[in-house]
């Protein structure tokens, strides 16, 4: 029982991270139908910048804010320089562009920060708390709380504000949104900024646990993508649940079966799910277009 609880805690922590990254995927996908394979690099940038600013002894809140802001700017820059000029290209060409961007950003990061992991001090106390026999580090609780707050804030933004509603309208039908007088281009920019920011947030809060390395984004990005697909790719609720389901199942598989195959477990889950329910847990079955 304690064992299960322990695995659950670690699953929830990584699940929260996957959920944030998956949300980033769905935001860009809804705005542009681009699968952004550079999403993981936003996470890496968030973590790296946090490490740098913490190293400069900036106060923590300022370090976080700067890390997220700079990554959001990177997101905007990417949209302007690489996605917008190619917006009429085929989906596979756009995917290759984002893969190229990912290689580019990773190369830049290696160049700026080097290959060694950068340490990040824990934001809150380091003493583990024991809950019903299992232990949990305070940082994990912070990860969960931050993720929940971020998800709820984002949900409120999409449901309650005019801009958020306009973004949802664009996702549903871009042409119809235009007809209603919604300017699509700034919204796409906003989507990239938001998506980069939320992924950077994932990088910020995970950095004290995993430390920051230039190549940490690849696997995190792929897992986040899996979570987004699990949730149906367009649904933000789906993305969040997909992230937690993936994190928890992965932790259970690693704990009870074999930790060596932990990275495989996430993808086995994904493939099985795709075979049983191809449109994702929360995706709607699309009518076939002829």
């Amino acid at each position: 029982m304690e064992e299960i609880l322990q695995y659950l805690f670690s699953g929830l922590t990584s699940g929260a991270i996957y959920a944030l990254i998956a949300l980033g995927f769905t935001i860009i996908y809804n705005a542009t139908e681009v699968i952004n394979f550079a999403q993981g690099e936003f996470v890496m940038l968030g973590a790296m910048l946090t490490a740098t600013f913490c190293g400069l002894n900036l106060p923590l809140p300022l370090a976080f804010a700067l890390a997220i802001l700079i990554t959001a700017l990177a997101g905007i820059l990417i949209e302007r320089l690489a996605i917008y000029p190619a917006r009429k290209a085929s989906p596979i060409t756009l995917i290759i562009i984002t893969i190229g961007l990912s290689i580019l950003i990773k190369g830049l990061a290696m160049f700026i920060w080097g290959k060694d992991p950068l340490p990040v001090p824990a934001f809150v106390g380091e003493r583990p708390i024991s809950v019903l026999g299992a232990t949990i580090v305070p940082q994990s609780i912070l990860v969960l709380a931050t993720a929940l707050i971020a998800v709820l804030t984002l949900e409120a933004f999409f449901k309650k504000t005019l801009t958020g509603k306009a973004m949802r309208a664009c996702a549903a039908n871009r042409l119809a949104a235009r007809l209603l007088g919604i300017k699509v281009e700034p919204l796409v920019l906003l989507a990239f900024a938001l998506s980069a920011a939320i992924s950077a947030l994932a990088g910020v809060i995970i950095s004290p646990i995993t430390f920051a390395t230039y190549d940490m984004g690849t696997m995190l990005g792929l897992k986040g993508f899996s979570a987004a697909v699990l949730g149906g790719l367009t649904s933000s609720t789906g993305a969040v649940l997909g992230g937690f389901i993936l994190g928890i199942l992965e932790a259970l598989a690693a704990g009870f079966l074999s930790s060596a195959y932990k990275d495989a477990a996430a993808f086995i889950i994904l493939i099985l799910m795709l075979f049983v329910k191809p449109e994702g847990l929360f995706g709607t079955k699309e009518a076939k277009k002829l």
Partner: peptide, 8 residues
């Protein structure tokens, strides 16, 4: 790597 990514 930087140049490779850029060219791509």
């Amino acid at each position: 790597v930087l140049i490779f990514g850029t060219i791509l």
